[in-house]
Design a protein around this nucleic acid. Structure first.
Lengths: 134, 134
DNA sequence: CAAAATACGATTAAATAAAACGTATATAAC
DNA sequence: GTTATATACGTTTTATTTAATCGTATTTTG
């Protein structure tokens, strides 16, 4: 129940790291992965995901790297997890892609849906700048 | 990030089922597992866990079963997940049993701890009666 | 052109969760 | 008392999910 995954941890570490630098100072995936002792390939993918969703801006080529594209105060924890994982929900059946095998006899369809909504609202209410103290 | 596990789902289903009956009407693990199409052994363990933590009262023998021991308004979602999983936290490093391999270079120790506290407070604020509409 | 960076699909490995198995114990019905 | 049915609980196996690795392409600086 309710555990954070590595992608999320790595993303928070990277954002904390990047937000401590000036806008002209690019940060490479290698730089973060080495300083934080995180596998390079995994860190790179996390940064790519954040860049493709518009939170970071990527510069190609040698001496390239990433820089913040939006202020962290504008992005919530929920927003970040959506950038990394797409649709986020308490259970698979809420994603409506898979109808769930026991949906015919399930007696908590509505309760789960309501709780899910509450949880999402909570995570939407917490900004990244608040979490990271930046 | 933030997914509910099966134990939790099964527990909510069982509590919803049990709470719809009178205090004299015992509910067996078999009854719930068959009606909800949940593996009997798994359902049985969930009920045992809830009984050992005082949320349910167990009656032995033929015609035995479970009955609510405490009102659901007194127990939170956080409380329920603790009954099923013990210590609950966003990350393993917060459980302080395992010190985490990158703790020396981790730059989000305090942010994670603060976020974890907020999340726990949120889940403590939601009662089971509220979730289950009982 | 060579070096160093992002981009991204595919595969493999590790960790976790879920389910199944086996046995013991308690109690009601007969 | 014997049988049937229930809880109790530790162990093992299987399935699923997550994390990490591999391989290759593209871009840009020097």
């Amino acid at each position: 129940m309710n555990k954070m995954n590595k992608k999320m941890e790595y993303a928070l570490m990277a954002l904390k790291h990047i937000s401590g630098k000036s806008d002209q100072d690019l940060t490479s995936a290698k730089e973060i992965s080495e300083q934080m002792h995180i596998p390079f390939e995994v860190m790179a993918k996390v940064l790519q995901a954040l860049a493709s969703r518009g939170l970071l801006k990527a510069e190609y080529g040698a001496s390239g790297g990433y820089v913040l594209a939006r202020p962290l105060s504008e992005v919530s924890v929920h927003g970040l997890s959506e950038m990394l994982e797409g649709h986020v929900a308490l259970t698979k059946c809420l994603g409506n892609d898979e109808p769930c095998e026991i949906s015919g006899t399930c007696n908590i369809t509505s309760p789960i849906s309501n709780l899910n909504k509450k949880v999402q609202e909570f995570y939407k209410s917490v900004s990244l700048s608040e979490v990271l103290h930046v």
